[in-house]
């Protein structure tokens, strides 16, 4: 079982390494969205400091959603998905493997880069570390929840837009607690409570989302 998990993660990472533009495009999307806000709002540091948590989190939400399209679509088109569904292993193991690889490729770089971008918003070190931590806990949950939407819309015309309709409302709790953690740190209250809620959401998503996603994949692959 773990062997298969490892094989899938390794395969998807290898594929991503051979086609690096996919990783970079999600990352640059995140960077550009974040850099656009000061241009639209104005460079006043006190305002930027205040809105930074929301902007970072909404940008992370959008970047994660955009990346979802590639999660299963290629495997669906070339027939690999059928082979995965015919594997003698539980499908949710495969789903977990794919989501982990997907997060390592599209989520983690964004988490790592976020403190650097935070400097643009004049955030203090304490706030930067809260931002990093909240994204580290939140973005995997986004990938997990999003995988349900990606699986449901597989092979549907206009699937890309549809995914956003299905997935964004489900992202709201992550957004609230993620941005809340950073905000609470900014205001000096400490983001502990929010971070533990994020952790709880992540654990819940880890248990439930792969099951829903595998059921959805079976339906979509028919």
């Amino acid at each position: 079982m773990f062997e298969l998990f490892r094989v899938i993660v390794q395969r998807d990472l290898l594929l991503a390494m051979r086609r690096r533009s996919d990783i970079l495009s999600t990352l640059f999307f995140f960077v550009i969205v974040i850099s656009l806000f000061p241009l639209g709002i104005g460079p006043e540091p006190s305002i930027l400091r205040e809105i930074a948590p929301g902007i970072f989190w909404v940008a992370a939400l959008l970047a994660s959603m955009l990346a979802l399209e590639r999660l299963f679509a290629v495997d669906y088109v070339d027939g690999s998905l059928e082979q995965m569904l015919l594997s003698p292993q539980p499908v949710f193991i495969l789903v977990m493997g794919k989501v982990l690889a997907h997060w390592l490729v599209t989520g983690l770089p964004l988490v790592i880069l976020s403190p650097l971008l935070g400097i643009q918003y004049d955030l203090s070190n304490e706030v930067l570390s809260a931002l990093l931590l909240s994204l580290l806990l939140g973005t995997p949950a986004l990938s997990l929840i999003g995988s349900i939407g990606a699986a449901l819309t597989l092979g549907i015309r206009g699937g890309g837009v549809l995914v956003s309709l299905l997935v964004l409302p489900l992202y709201i709790p992550v957004l609230i607690f993620g941005a809340g953690a950073v905000e609470a740190t900014v205001s000096g209250l400490g983001g502990q409570g929010h971070l533990s809620m994020l952790g709880a959401i992540l654990i819940g998503a880890l248990v439930l989302a792969p099951l829903a996603t595998s059921a959805a994949l079976r339906i979509s692959a028919e």
Partner: peptide, 21 residues
Amino acid sequence: NALKDDLTGVENLRVSCALDG
């Protein structure tokens, strides 16, 4: 064919066998 264009023949074969256990 369920092949990944970016993987080599050997890699593809090993993955598809691993999927089948």
